[in-house]
Design a protein around this nucleic acid. Structure first.
Length: 413
DNA sequence: GGTAGCATGATTATCCCA
DNA sequence: TGGGATAATCATGCTACC
């Protein structure tokens, strides 16, 4: 454990900041002409993050064997409503060059995965946040970004944070022995009809209240599949509209896709309120709008968050390989946006030359945002949870490659 | 070929108690 | 402090059906 939560990092941790700078929250601006900020040159000599007892270990030496301990509670650099405190992130100088960037993946990844991701993203410590503080469902995710952390604001209206606040109709049949007040992580698969029928039969054949053994079985399945009580002894999976609501998307955002595709797309998506809280610091910095490079866009969680924040998107270059997700984003974009949406299918088609061409065309990107595939990192994957170098998750290296290309090209514009 | 239904543990972290 | 118990987890592959 060589990391300590970044929110406790203070200026006094390091006497020397030869290769780090305290984030200057006024550094980025696109509206009044992109200024070339003064950045210190990278130093080959790395310094360490962490403080106190953790300060003697480094994320850079033998990163594959290292692991980042998850904060408890998983509140990132601060939650809405927290009392103001001095948060001064020490970021490597080269990470602070424009554009802003924001990377996301599952918090509970395989050992060493976040250490490697952090190492590739300038050694910045991930901000681990559980979306249970923003909505009625858990969603433990890690975010690496170079955004300021002061002056964040929440989306209004504030979403309900308990099951009964979100769906009061289910309280009628909710048994007292089911103590759940929030859902677990919304995933890509839903419970089968056979399972809910088995639960119904087990309850119907048991006493009232059910035996301890039946309660244990039912509760385990309810927690695993996020089941709700729709009648006496009857449970059901959440439907797509409910998942959209919990995740912060507009009603029927995924219309047009099949049920299976909806579940998969939503299970893979951002929790909008959480991401919007982090991105909210951009609103005042880009009053004239932003150019966004959205990698692994999915159903447009980042775009929806920016839209809900009232941040105008002049252009979004979106890269998403799933046809259904691209259709969902395109439909939403056409209905709500006046800017330009440029779509690509494969991140690997976004070469250095292509990126340079886009930057010449658009004048640069203000934000590079995306969450690369978690398939080989996620605990739910029983078949190929092989770590960062798995077929899907290795694409995080394309995020790094593209971000580095954008930074280097924009530094020379 | 596309879709839906279904069955399929392991890894990781945390809690609790001796 | 160590080990067992408990809990959570952006999923994949096979089969049937249209």
């Amino acid at each position: 454990m060589w990391y300590t939560p970044m929110h406790v990092l203070v200026d006094s941790i390091y006497a020397s900041q030869a290769d780090h700078e305290v984030l200057d929250e006024n550094r980025f601006s696109s509206c009044v002409g992109r200024k070339k900020a003064r950045f210190t040159e990278d130093s080959k000599k790395r310094k360490r993050y962490g403080g106190g007892a953790h300060g003697s270990q480094s994320p850079w030496d033998g990163g594959h064997e290292e692991s980042i301990s998850l904060p408890k509670p998983m509140v990132g650099f601060g939650l809405p409503g927290d009392r103001p405190r001095s948060v001064s992130r020490l970021l490597p100088a080269h990470s602070m060059r424009a554009p802003f960037f924001y990377y996301e993946n599952v918090a509970l990844a395989t050992k060493g995965a976040w250490a490697e991701i952090s190492r590739c993203l300038y050694g910045i410590e991930p901000e681990f946040v559980d979306s249970k503080y923003f909505c009625a469902a858990l969603r433990k995710r890690g975010y690496i970004h170079n955004l300021p952390t002061e002056g964040r604001s929440v989306l209004r209206p504030i979403p309900p944070k308990t099951i009964f606040e979100a769906f009061p109709q289910y309280e009628t049949w909710w048994p007292s022995w089911d103590q759940r007040r929030q859902f677990n992580c919304l995933q890509t698969c839903m419970a089968s009809a056979k399972l809910t029928e088995r639960i119904h039969r087990a309850l119907a054949n048991s006493s009232d209240p059910p035996t301890q053994a039946v309660q244990k079985y039912v509760l385990e399945e309810c927690r695993k599949w996020n089941l709700v009580w729709i009648g006496k002894n009857k449970v059901a999976a959440l439907d797509s509209l409910e998942m959209e609501f919990l995740l912060g998307y507009p009603r029927d955002h995924t219309r047009g896709a099949s049920k299976k595709k909806k579940d998969k797309c939503l299970g893979n998506s951002f929790q909008v309120d959480t991401v919007a809280f982090h991105l909210s610091v951009l609103k005042d910095r880009f009053p004239c709008g932003m150019n966004v490079l959205s990698l692994f866009s999915g159903i447009g969680g980042a775009e929806v968050a920016l839209h809900k924040l009232g941040i105008r998107m002049k252009t979004v270059v979106s890269v998403e390989i799933c046809d259904a997700s691209r259709n969902i984003l395109r439909t939403w974009w056409d209905q709500t946006q006046e800017g330009t949406l440029i779509e690509f299918r494969d991140v690997q088609s976004l070469t250095h030359e292509k990126i340079a061409s886009l930057i010449r065309q658009l004048g640069g990107f203000d934000l590079v945002i995306g969450g690369s595939p978690c398939n080989n990192l996620a605990g739910s994957n029983r078949h190929h949870r092989v770590g960062l170098e798995g077929d899907q998750s290795v694409l995080f290296r394309d995020y790094v490659r593209i971000l580095n290309s954008v930074k280097s090209i924009m530094a020379n514009v």
